[in-house]
Structures are given as C-alpha cells and as structure tokens.
Design a binder for these strands. Structure first.
Length: 278
DNA sequence: AGACGTACCTGACCGC
DNA sequence: TGCGGTCAGGTACGTC
C-alpha cells in the first residue's frame, strides 16, 4: 500500500487528531503481523501521553511521554483509521485498537488484511530505522548526494531507487512516475546515469512526492486517510498502471508504439514510455 | 559485499 | 456459481 506520500498524509492526520491525548487502553486482537506485537506493548503504552506523531521513510513514529516510541509500518495493505468509540464494532483484520482518555476522543484502529505491517514499541527510536537511507524531501537529498549514492551500483536504477537503505520512502508507484519525468528508463544501470540526469531525477522525485502529498496520496485498493477519505493522486499518474495508453503530453502514434510498456524487474511491474525514457 | 530470488498473507479479478 | 491462476502500494532473509 502506502509509500511516502500516503504515510505522510496519515501521519499528519493522526498528529492533528491525537497529539496531547493520553492512551487509556490498548487492545490486541491478534498475536502480531510481520512479527509478534511486543508482549509489553500494553503496559508500556497505557497511561502515556502522545507528544508527537511524525514520519521517517514509510514508518510512523508515535512519540510518547516516558521516552517510549510506538513504531507503525503499514506494509502493503495496512490502515490506521480513527473511529468514534461509541460507533466502533470490530471489523475483519482489525488487529490493534488504541483508546484515549476523554469522552469525545476517538479510537485508533490498525487494520491490515495482508498482515505485512508492523507495530513495535522502543526506547531508542533509531533501532529499527538506523539502516534507512536519505529522506528524499530533506535538504540533504541533492544531485551530488544521489550521484555519490549510486556511483558503484550495478543494479538497475529502478531497483536502486526502491532500495530503502539508499533512499527511504519511495515505492513502486513513485519510482515509475519519477523516472518518467526524468526521462530515464527503469532498465538503465544505476551507476551509468549522468550527473545531469540525476539532477533531473532529484527534481522529479521531489516534484512527484510533493504533488502526491498535496493530493492526499494515491488510493488504489486499500489506502485511506486516517479519517477514512481517499487520496486523489491516482488520477494524475503519468505511467503507473497505464500499460498500452498514451503517456502524458504524448505525441507518439500509440498504434505504432503500443503506448506505455510494462515489464517486470525484481518481481515488480515497471511502467515506462520507451520513446521518452532512455 | 552485493545482487537476486523467494517467502510472508489476504483479497480482487479474470477466464473457463 | 465456483475454481484456479495471477496480481497487488513492502520488507526480510537465504543463497550464490
């Protein structure tokens, strides 16, 4: 499911609704997801106040009083949604429920059908996150920085951009979109991209991510914002999911070219325009 | 070390 | 209607 823009949207929604509230109870409705829920999650979280809710890569960090941090990862199909306590009855795949003090406080529900998500609680928030690469929306993400990161990478540019230890937060959709705007083929060897092309790629990644955040993310199958509404960036895809169609501002003869191509790289679909992306 | 395949899960959709 | 195959926004781990 969610890549950086979706996680950012969810994180902002949760921060607005939950910052300052005190966790009154945590209900486990499953043993765990990708890994077991911490056995002491309840005792460590209950009674704590939410200081802040932020994002790092595709992780949501809920920082609590007492120097505890709850970490969420949504995997492919995870959702964090707010529901009114009085109207809450459990749905299928609701795995965790957080309740908060105060009569009108909502409940926070972690729902995840495919169970690839994760919830952990840590003292040192860096433990799970220390191997993550650069944040693509940070000031440190520059053309020289990206050139340095990719200079020895023999793998495809597509695989390199999906590697969370190089750049943290991109997923299949936004990599396809950014490569289209940078006019680079997903098949290109990463170390063979020129500094000029990488400068363009940095701009494209920033632009795509910022536009997607503005649109509230992309809703395909599972993704909803924490208030249950959907994002709209899926209506602005240039290539993702557009096999056989014209790409944006296309002047090619689609009957002749076959339009946008779909190939498989590392077991995942890549969509690209063979004419524009070299 | 780096690159690649595969496993983890459920659900939606398509063709027969 | 149902069944099997395929695909899906991600990450971790084994193997070469």
């Amino acid at each position: 499911m969610p890549e950086l823009p979706e996680v950012e949207t969810i994180s902002r929604g949760l921060a607005k609704a939950l910052t300052g509230l005190r966790i009154s109870s945590v209900e486990k409705r499953a043993k765990g997801l990708r890994k077991p829920f911490p056995p002491d999650l309840k005792t460590r979280a209950e009674g704590r106040k939410i200081i802040s809710i932020t994002r790092r890569a595709k992780y949501i960090l809920m920082s609590l009083s007492g120097n505890e941090t709850i970490i969420f990862h949504l995997g492919m199909s995870g959702k964090l949604v707010l529901r009114q306590k009085r109207e809450y009855s459990p749905n299928k795949h609701d795995h965790l429920v957080f309740n908060f003090s105060g009569k009108n406080s909502p409940a926070l529900i972690f729902n995840d059908p495919r169970r690839f998500g994760l919830c952990d609680i840590v003292h040192d928030e860096n433990s799970l996150l220390k191997s993550l690469g650069i944040e693509p929306l940070s000031p440190e993400f520059t053309a020289p920085a990206l050139t340095e990161l990719l200079k020895n990478k023999k793998t495809s540019i597509k695989s390199a951009l999906l590697d969370q230890s190089i750049i943290a937060g991109l997923g299949n959709i936004y990599v396809c979109e950014a490569l289209f705007y940078a006019r680079i083929s997903p098949k290109r060897e990463a170390r063979k991209c020129s500094p000029k092309e990488l400068a363009c790629l940095v701009k494209s990644i920033r632009k795509v991510l910022q536009s997607a955040i503005k649109a509230g993310g992309s809703s395909l199958r599972d993704y909803v914002r924490s208030d249950g509404t959907t994002g709209s960036f899926q209506n602005h895809f240039a290539v993702y999911g557009c096999e056989g169609k014209k790409c944006k501002t296309c002047t090619c003869n689609v009957i002749k070219t076959g339009g946008i191509k779909r190939i498989t790289q590392g077991g995942r679909s890549s969509f690209y325009c063979e004419t524009k992306q070299k």
